[in-house]
Design a protein around this nucleic acid. Structure first.
Lengths: 148, 148
DNA sequence: CAAATAAAAGATAAAAAAGTCTTTTTATAT
DNA sequence: ATATAAAAAGACTTTTTTATCTTTTATTTG
């Protein structure tokens, strides 16, 4: 469903949210190491996210990535749209050229409700909310949340 | 979610079910033309499906593809597993390394119920059933259903 | 200001997926 | 039997995705 790039992006943004802040930025290499993502590949992805202002970055010594307050209110949807494009969810699951209420494919009535719930979740779930939820579920003992 | 190959496979099998039978086989080129699929690429896919006995074929003049009674009782799941492999549905939707009831990703509780319903549908939906359903929904005026 | 550091940019490479072409095999009809 | 038609097999090409490497630019700190 999502590409590797898209999945890497989500995990990286989560990591940034939970492990850095404006006064304590984190480098792409460190994120890549911790998340087992090829470092130069992740760097490219973070570049894209920065360009679309979903995350923030600063060059030079003690530079790195962090999330501004504005970034924190971006949604999962924004990340996915930036890296994968959101169009992919609109195509028929089974690849039929026409697929709608009148001419539904065999799993149309399963897929569409899921897709709608999914999209509405992606659009409302902000990065902070997601990061908090994630850190709870994953018992980050090293959890730091000091953005701005 | 599904690859192009997987989607082509499903559409082609449907087409075979609705447009051929043991005494009236259909060629890969004709299927490709009707479904707007690159012909040699589809030929490869049909070859795979034949090898795994999901569809049947006969070489030579008036040869082509058709579905035996046994083929007709294969499921959507069989087609997808043959071409795409079914493992892909088991991975976390957001790509988190660990994702389960104890450590769910943000959309785990949306995705898992969908996945379960999907897999059970794919496993129970036979090719004939699907073909009949499809031909109803799509008002095939040229619908012929004479298998065996 | 100079040195160091880290992201940005861009060029290149490898792998996978999608698509094409050619030759071989086999069943059928004449 | 032979010619023919169609799938099977396999080699090859293109495109997309994933991954790597090098150079440039910006920022911070001494």
């Amino acid at each position: 469903m999502l590409s590797k790039s898209g999945k890497y992006a989500i995990r990286a943004v989560l990591y940034i949210s939970n492990h850095s802040n404006k006064n304590n930025k984190i480098g792409s290499k460190e994120i890549a190491n911790k998340l087992h993502i090829p470092a130069p590949f992740l760097a490219k992805i973070l570049q894209e996210l920065t360009k679309k202002e979903i995350i923030s970055s600063v060059k030079g010594p003690h530079g790195g990535f962090y999330l501004s307050q504005k970034n924190n209110n971006k949604t999962l949807f924004d990340i996915i749209d930036c890296i994968d494009g959101i169009q992919k969810f609109e195509n028929c699951f089974l690849g039929q050229e026409e697929c709608n209420e009148n001419k539904p494919c065999v799993i149309h009535h399963l897929y569409v409700p899921f897709k709608n719930k999914l999209l509405s979740k992606l659009k409302t779930k902000t990065i902070v909310e997601m990061a908090i939820e994630y850190s709870k579920n994953n018992n980050f003992f090293d959890f730091v949340k000091l953005n701005e």
